[in-house]
Write a protein that binds this DNA or RNA. Structure first.
Lengths: 222, 222
DNA sequence: GACATTTCCGTACCGCGGGTACAGTTGGAG
DNA sequence: CTCCAACTGTACCCGCGGTACGGAAATGTC
């Protein structure tokens, strides 16, 4: 009964590693089933087609991403009550996390699938969109909390600033992959952090009571 | 004699349109040759394999991109002698350009190929990297010129800020594709513009002679 | 324990697309 | 007319996604 569950899980793990390493198109089912120790029929018992595999893979990946992000922002919130500082700390931690991955970030599955969209059906694309919007919404909530305390220095749309983080991460992954230098992703996140800091950090005198301390140039936990 | 050249050109044009519309993996040679009015053998006379097609496509795409970028920065430089203003104008024009494309940006071929790298050989990947680095170097040169006049407000690595534009564009394209909203790319470029503006625009009193005019919130030709 | 049912996986095959082999055609130079 | 070179068409191979179908092992029912 639950033997099938284990097999299905094994397929997903093997497929995920392969997709992140080589891209979805370059991942052949034959290769996956060989690695997983089953046959084609076994695969197609668990997944109707490659679309369904992509859908499942994406679901897992997104869930894990959200978990990591939540945990990270949660930890940051514990380190500072001040929303801007907490956000900056979270970004620093995110940069560290991305930079510490051995061999660099495995690659963003969302982008990988985005560039293959014709291979997939609507459901996959929709899932993709919802995931992006969900992350953006989360970041936006943080930014709005920050903006309530620190009026932004430039008249920017906070939703755009929120989405910018997703752009930076996806773009940074591309830079890292193309140049073969994983650190670039981390640097980009830190650049975004500098942007947020400049945008909200008060120009010397507008600091609200109990707000930003004076040595705000590198307040994040190293 | 020159008939072959014309055929080769036709193949490239058809292939480019298809790749940008559907991605490289989803573009079949059979489809290309049908569209171009030749046969398979005709295709393989001009290109050793699909790798070589990708290589040529990428070369053309990169060359065109550089041309557009140069022309855009050149026009901007004609509109303002002040390097920061010229750069901001160029970014505004870039955002307008991206937003005006009917149906949105066709997709970044570099990113498209990046996520299929296993399908290609080293030469394609190398070309990819060089293109990115070339654009980054160009933008970096502008930023250094700017920084010589306007000391940056935050201690950032200008090379990272330069690369950030590439990240924003590639990431913005992904956002636009995933959400189906082409305007997002333009918004992201404008957000980057706000970042650059904040980074270099002097805080009210450090404006050099002949520098930034007071109504600097939207100085670009709209 | 016989029996059917569901779960799970194997074998054989199809169609499509990338790629090859090779034959044929066109056109210019001698 | 002949020969070479540039160019194109036909027939085929093979890997891969996907299907048809069948068999074994676990599970429920009496």
């Amino acid at each position: 009964m639950r033997k099938g569950e284990a097999t299905r899980e094994r397929i997903l793990e093997v497929a995920e590693a392969s997709v992140l390493a080589k891209g979805f198109g370059a991942t052949s089912i034959e290769e996956v089933i060989t690695e997983a120790g089953i046959t084609k029929s076994g695969f197609f018992y668990h997944f109707r087609d490659k679309n369904e595999l992509a859908h499942e893979l994406l679901r897992r990946y997104i869930a894990e991403d959200h978990r990591i992000l939540d945990e990270l922002f949660g930890r940051a919130a514990n380190l500072s009550d001040e929303p801007l500082q907490a956000f900056l700390i979270a970004l620093k931690m995110l940069a560290d996390l991305m930079g510490d991955l051995p061999g660099g970030h495995p690659g963003c599955m969302i982008a990988s699938i985005c560039y293959q969209e014709r291979l997939f059906d609507r459901r996959v694309v929709t899932l993709n969109r919802e995931a992006i919007e969900s992350v953006n919404a989360r970041v936006l909530a943080h930014l709005e909390t920050i903006a309530a305390v620190h009026p932004p220095r430039e008249p920017v749309d906070l939703a755009v600033v929120a989405e910018m983080l997703s752009c930076i991460i996806d773009g940074g992954i591309i830079m890292a992959k193309v140049t073969g230098d994983p650190a670039r992703l981390a640097y980009q996140i830190l650049a975004y952090r500098a942007f947020v800091k400049m945008l909200f950090a008060a120009p010397a005198r507008d600091i609200p009571p109990g707000g930003v301390p004076s040595r705000q140039s590198s307040p994040a936990a190293g």
